[in-house]
């Protein structure tokens, strides 16, 4: 992990004007806006904190809150409410159903339209920080596959940081996710989780 450093808001990252999430352009270059890890060589910035910003194409795990004439009101755990229109689905949903869905549309005032829902029955729901979602999924799904084979659970991780777990060892999977959240910023995460899962199964 050479050439990476933890940066705090307002810290100068580069004298160049870079377009990176979690940064802002200033007169003298680019500065960090949130706590994160900056890689000087590759000019990459990874935020360590921050809330989820709904983006088109993201898969989210959400809870149906109400049934409306035009569709379903859905809580995607952001400050903004989402709508799943009836035309997007043939499913009959009811409040408190947990669904996995894709964000189809986000407009300027953050009205969110969802589509392609899949009902997740049974199981448990847990929350991780949205900034840690890429680490929980891993490169080419390596981490989530490790978790699924290691715990024998079905796991769905939403980009909004909501995770749905179903299987025989749900608590182990949730503990592993919490461990990922705590240690996501430290190198060698997948190996560490693998050995941890092995030790837990003994």
């Amino acid at each position: 992990m050479a050439n990476t450093r933890i940066v705090v808001p307002g810290e100068l990252l580069s004298s160049k004007q870079l377009k990176l999430r979690g940064t802002y352009p200033s007169k003298d270059g680019t500065r960090a806006a949130v706590i994160g890890i900056y890689n000087e060589e590759e000019e990459k910035f990874v935020p360590l904190k921050g809330s989820y910003v709904p983006t088109v194409g993201d898969k989210v795990v959400a809870v149906v809150t109400e049934e409306k004439v035009i569709g379903y009101g859905v809580d995607i755990f952001t400050p903004y409410k989402a709508l799943l229109p009836s035309r997007m689905t043939r499913l009959r949903l009811s409040p408190n159903d947990i669904i996995e869905s894709e964000i189809i549309e986000v407009n300027e005032v953050k009205d969110i339209i969802l589509g392609r829902p899949r009902v997740l029955r049974g199981g448990r729901v847990t929350f991780i920080s949205p900034t840690k979602v890429p680490r929980a999924i891993g490169k080419k799904n390596s981490m989530i596959q490790l978790l699924q084979t290691g715990t024998g659970c079905e796991i769905v991780i939403g980009k909004n940081g909501v995770v749905w777990v179903r299987g025989k060892n749900e608590q182990l999977a949730i503990d592993a996710l919490m461990k990922i959240e705590r240690e996501a910023h430290i190198a060698g995460l997948t190996d560490r989780i693998q050995s941890w899962l092995m030790s837990q199964q003994r």
Binding site: G10, A33, V34, I35
Partner: peptide, 9 residues
């Protein structure tokens, strides 16, 4: 800063 709210400074 710990809440991850974007700050200029």
């Amino acid at each position: 800063a710990t809440a991850g709210i974007p700050l200029r400074d």
